[in-house]
Nucleic acid binder design. Structure first.
Lengths: 208, 208
DNA sequence: GAAAAAAGAGAACAAAAAGAAAACATGGTG
DNA sequence: CACCATGTTTTCTTTTTGTTCTCTTTTTTC
């Protein structure tokens, strides 16, 4: 069995990643539009290759109806939707570990990562310029390291947890608020413990 | 059992998503109007297909009275797709009604209202100062009226849908962006149709 | 750089699906 | 009774879709 070409792999990946965006198997024309291609016939060749590779199956007995992924392919992308632990609010001056799970919150797949996550409610305005407001919920991937420029939950001096942009240089860790009225804080690496990285954010506009 | 065709899927989805909007089972003519179809006979074929698939049941012993969903159909809608209909992106210049449900998105209870809701993806920066960024998802409560100061999905001149603050005075409707680089738009009431009100917002920070 | 492979555009075709429009049936209403 | 809203059937046209073909363009490989 032949190995996939680059474009075939691209198209398969697109199908795998976007299967949830189609309620029904997409037709060739729909796929063309989604892939920004102009020719059905060109796409058709790739789909046939994927069919031959066993990665995609014709929908309706090779007649009409579009293509859909094989069962194996679908498994790969499917995840069970389950609530994330909601552990309280941040900027409350307490380490996250001290907070017990208050409840569980159902969160869209798109806002999670594939690693363990939890949900916090934001208190304060330190990140308003990043579009994170007082009262928002944030989805945090549990992780002890971060890349510069990421928004992290950082535990300072083992006592206070905050949500800030992080900038780690040699011998110095900068925690940057997204608020012109606040100033950046500088620490030594051993003073700061990263407890997680921001992967999602949610806000309710309902009156309460 | 035959697999549903694309159009049958669409119509079933429409029935499932809009069953709350009909106090009684809709007649074929009512459904035609709702689906913007001109021929009862054409729709009838689709309904029969849905009946044969066990997804829809005739209301009054195949006599008068319209169609309504079977219990199974309701189950499917509730169990399989627990999420809200995701109907596409806004600021794409298209009325919402023209957009079909492309997928479903699981949304936290706290971001919904108790009325029917749907999800849109935001395109553009017109609401950045309200903390709504390009690429964010918004949960919209389906509603044709709004209070001043609410953020609404407004259909302008029956052709373009946008997300803006609304301010309705006598004989004038103001649509206010939350972006200092953009200006407010003023319309006559009959030029603006409110399609929904913002009740929730979500953002993903995952790279993709 | 030339040859080969891959990718793409676009046209043409047949079959399926979808739609329009009209006619007919049937029950309820005034 | 006539009238009307509705479901049902039929006949037609139009659109969509998979499929195949030829041709050009781009990318890879030697």
């Amino acid at each position: 069995m032949d190995v996939l070409t680059r474009r075939q792999r691209e198209i398969f990946n697109f199908l795998r990643d976007n299967q949830d965006h189609f309620t029904r198997p997409p037709s060739l024309d729909e796929l063309c539009a989604a892939l920004d291609m102009a020719s059905r016939g060109s796409l058709y060749k790739h789909i046939v290759a994927l069919i031959n590779a066993g990665l995609v199956e014709p929908f309706n007995g090779n007649k009409q109806g579009g293509v859909r992924l094989t069962v194996q392919a679908r498994m790969e992308g499917d995840a069970v939707e389950q609530g994330l632990p909601f552990v309280g609010s941040i900027a409350a001056g307490k380490p996250i570990e001290a907070l017990e799970t208050v409840s569980y919150m159902t969160v869209p797949e798109a806002l999670k990562s594939d690693k363990p996550c939890y949900v916090l409610q934001v208190k304060g305005d330190s990140m308003i310029e990043a579009g994170i407001f007082d009262g928002d919920w944030v989805v945090i991937e549990q992780r002890s390291f971060a890349n510069n420029g990421e928004i992290v939950v950082a535990l300072i001096e083992n006592s206070e947890a905050t949500l800030k942009y992080i900038e780690q240089n040699a011998g110095q860790v900068l925690l940057l608020p997204a608020n012109a009225t606040m100033t950046a804080l500088s620490y030594r690496p051993e003073q700061v413990e990263i407890q997680g990285v921001l992967v999602g954010q949610m806000r309710s506009y309902r009156p309460h």
